[in-house]
């Protein structure tokens, strides 16, 4: 009951979704959409559990007056305001439906999101400065490919090149495109194939009950 039933459920749902793909019929399509709907219904409950855990964590921090506890109040304020305003106001078919929800989204969430990622530009540059040393052939290739792609990506790359040689004014962006379309794509294709083979074998192990770590420990 505690371990066997989940294994049977996993097998049934897994095998149904696999076979369904190879049996093109109306019934099979209906079955797929019904099972996917089930997934879309069950999935959000996991998010609710995650939110309950987050709330419990910050509530405990406030209750125990742990270090930096006032910031936990900020988490609650942000969460409650956004959730209440958004839930009351809702979405339209075009997305966010204007009003205070859109205002909070555009003036609080989007700027912070973009700035967090923009911050990475500094750290990535500092990491590159420390890590990019052309000591071996492989490291040199990495460095040269990165520099050529960056040079070709920035409009200033072509502008500088035009001053040097007017014969092929867009050479930096052409080189960048060639790198992306040929050596980069070939390695990427091999990586995608490798990842997929791994994903397929892991999925088979899960469906057949060989891989059971998702059941956790204990009885």
């Amino acid at each position: 009951m505690r371990r066997q039933v989940p294994l049977v459920l996993c097998f049934l749902f897994g095998i149904t979704m696999t076979i369904q793909y190879y049996v093109p019929s109306r019934f099979s399509e209906d079955l797929k959409s019904e099972v996917l709907n089930w997934g879309l219904i069950i999935g959000p409950f996991a998010l609710v559990l995650a939110i309950a855990t987050l709330v419990r964590l910050h509530y405990t921090r406030i209750q125990r007056r742990s270090e930096n506890w006032p910031y936990s109040i900020v988490v609650f304020v942000g969460l409650i305001v956004m959730a209440v305003v958004g839930t009351v106001q809702g979405f339209t078919s075009q997305g966010i439906s204007g009003g205070p929800f859109e205002w909070i989204f555009n003036n609080i969430q989007v700027p912070m999101d973009a700035t967090m990622f923009a911050l990475l530009a500094f750290f990535i540059a500092s990491a590159a400065y420390r890590a990019f040393r052309a000591r071996t052939l492989e490291a040199t290739l990495l460095l040269v490919a990165a520099l050529l792609v960056m040079f070709g990506n920035a409009p200033i790359g072509d502008l500088i090149w035009q001053k040097i040689s007017p014969v092929r004014p867009n050479l930096p962006s052409e080189v960048r495109q060639w790198i992306l379309d040929n050596p980069n794509l070939s390695s990427r294709r091999a990586i995608i194939m490798g990842i997929s083979l791994g994903a397929i074998s892991q999925s088979l192990r899960i469906i057949l009950g060989i891989e059971r770590s998702y059941l956790g420990g204990g009885e």
Binding site: I51, V74, F76, V77, L79, M82, T87, Q109, M112
Partner: peptide, 12 residues
């Protein structure tokens, strides 16, 4: 604030 607002957005 970002954590709170993002989770709130996820809820909505």
């Amino acid at each position: 604030l970002f954590v709170g607002v993002s989770v709130g957005y996820g809820i909505v």
